[in-house]
């Protein structure tokens, strides 16, 4: 019974059918099935599969966005049940995502955030045009493991260097791993500013983050 439901849940998410995903999840709960099993093997494996296909270029960004929505629809039903039973899912780590000050571009950051969530990372996205102090405050408040900085404008890349300096001056540099990305950002730049990691594209951004978390 559990196997069947897990299969149906996975198929619904891969088919980017949010209504079906929610319906199967609800039926699973009504039948008394273990929500953790449904999340880990139903939702999780669907997102892993979609992530792989995306990296291969078999499915595109809209499918990832819609797939995440379908997964969320199932999780809306499954997570409360999980909490009710007194357990929770274990995430690989917590990431804070922001686009630096002076830069209002966020599409790239949003795509990476989606893929991170699909890869079982917990993500707090505070948005675009964020000053160093705001980023640090949010990192502390949410007790994140990784800070992810994005910029599209070459003119805002210096804010990344300033962020790393701010972490240093505040004495908290070694509490966070810092990963940088965005179209004009390069490995060379990431090394020069002292970042821990660099994502050349969304998929490698997620891989590098997982490596930084030791996963």
């Amino acid at each position: 019974m559990l196997e069947l439901t897990i299969g149906q849940l996975r198929d619904a998410i891969v088919a980017i059918d949010a209504d079906k995903a929610r319906e199967v999840a609800q039926r699973g709960i009504d039948d008394g099935l273990d929500p953790l099993g449904m999340i880990n093997e139903g939702v999780r494996s669907a997102l892993d599969l979609m992530g792989e296909r995306f990296a291969l270029g078999d499915i595109f960004v809209p499918e990832i966005v819609l797939g995440a929505k379908a997964a969320d629809a199932a999780l809306e039903v499954l997570e409360p049940e999980l909490l009710r039973r007194g357990s929770s899912t274990e995430k690989l780590g917590k990431v804070l995502m922001a686009t630096v000050k002076g830069d209002i571009h966020d599409i790239g950051k949003n795509i990476v955030t989606l893929l991170m969530k699909a890869a079982d990372l917990e993500v707090v996205d505070i948005g675009a045009d964020k000053a160093g102090e705001e980023i640090l405050a949010a990192a502390k408040e949410h007790k994140v493991d990784v800070i992810g900085l994005s910029a599209l404008l070459t003119t805002t890349m210096p804010r990344m260097k300033e962020m790393l300096e701010l972490l240093q001056e505040s004495g908290v540099r070694d509490q966070y791993k810092v990963i940088v990305g965005g179209a004009p950002v390069t490995q060379e730049f990431a090394d020069a500013v002292g970042a821990d990691g660099y994502g050349a594209d969304a998929t490698s951004g997620v891989d590098v983050t997982k490596k930084l978390l030791g996963r």
């Binding site: 270029g57 595109f60 960004v61 809209p62 599409i107 790239g108 795509i111 179209a183 594209d201 969304a202």
Partner: peptide, 9 residues
């Protein structure tokens, strides 16, 4: 266009 395989310009 954005190339929808990556979202890139």
């Amino acid at each position: 266009l954005s190339d929808m395989r990556s979202g890139r310009f």
